[in-house]
């Protein structure tokens, strides 16, 4: 009996210890991420915020700014760059829709029809990441170039004008954006399609829905979490992207990312660049919130 009591006591003691340890473990686990976020996100965002309301004193050197809490910087920056601003969201929107149109059949095929080739196809989807983002974008300017395969094929068509150029056009920029973010669209779509129980699709057929109606009423709604995740992962970075517009576009296809980049590095106008960054962030946040509300998938995401 005494022996029994002894073991119970030591057990409860051990339990108390592990309880104490357990209560500390989550904090230890979260610490690296937290420190990282504070150093590289929270502090920079405050410094960016404070920069955005700074003013260059009269006659001061380039790159010298003092804090004057001038919120009119935002209005000025926005008014001066409205065109690029709207264009960014337009291009990003078109690229997102195109990426969705290309990825959905692809993801559907991998999830339901690929059989033993499923893993190979998934590797192929991710394969572009094995080479540099920059190089792949440059490659597009060759693909779409005057002597490139796309244009020389198009020239065979009777209604194509000899003077048609594809590089340095909005078409090239949107193509680049679509291409570069395709895996971000495909993978979440695949993940949500693959989770669908094939028996729910059979049940739909059993309940008098033909293939198309089953797709519309069961497959699409059940894949909505993937659609939402994929469109966000494509739209958000595409709206702020500047590489595609810089490499594949011309001065009249500039996006807001290009403006921010040139304000920071070329013009050295930090307040305008910071104000534009903040406006972009706020707009995306609002759009994303509205989008998630509208698609009604907040519980699913």
């Amino acid at each position: 009996m005494a022996f029994l009591q002894g073991t119970t006591k030591s057990q409860s003691g051990a339990k108390g210890d592990s309880l104490k340890k357990r209560s500390l473990t989550p904090y230890l686990l979260i610490a690296p991420g937290l420190i990282w976020l504070i150093t590289f996100f929270v502090i920079p965002i405050f410094s960016l915020g404070s920069t955005s309301t700074m003013v260059r004193p009269q006659g001061a050197q380039i790159g010298t700014y003092v804090q004057e809490l001038r919120f009119a910087n935002y209005v000025d920056a926005f008014l001066a760059n409205q065109e690029q601003y709207v264009r960014s969201f337009l291009y990003a929107g078109i690229a997102t829709i195109l990426a969705l149109a290309i990825s959905y059949p692809l993801a559907y095929m991998i999830a339901f029809r690929a059989g033993k080739y499923r893993n190979i196809l998934l590797v192929l989807v991710v394969a572009p990441f094995f080479t540099s983002f920059l190089l792949r974008t440059v490659a597009w300017s060759q693909i779409l170039g005057d002597e490139g395969p796309v244009l020389s094929t198009l020239r065979f068509l009777p209604f194509i004008d000899e003077s048609l150029r594809l590089t340095a056009t909005p078409f090239a920029v949107v193509s680049g954006l679509t291409y570069n973010f395709l895996p971000f669209m495909t993978l979440p779509l695949y993940a949500s399609l693959e989770r669908i129980d094939p028996r729910t699709l059979e049940a739909s057929g059993d309940l008098y829905a033909n293939g198309f109606i089953t797709f519309r009423k069961v497959t699409v709604p059940l894949s909505m979490p993937g659609v939402v995740a994929g469109t966000l992962l494509t739209f958000i970075p595409a709206a702020g992207d500047y590489v595609n517009a810089a490499l594949l576009g011309n001065p009249s296809t500039k996006m807001i990312g290009n403006v921010i980049e040139s304000r920071f590095f070329a013009v050295v106008d930090y307040p305008t660049a910071a104000a534009l960054s903040f406006t972009l962030m706020a707009t995306i946040l609002i759009l994303v919130t509205l989008y998630i509300r509208k698609s009604g998938t907040d519980e699913l995401v």
Binding site: T200, A203, S204, M224
Partner: peptide, 11 residues
């Protein structure tokens, strides 16, 4: 059909 795991539409 009543399916083995019911296959109700979760959405």
């Amino acid at each position: 059909t009543v399916f083995q795991n019911y296959a109700l539409f979760p959405h």
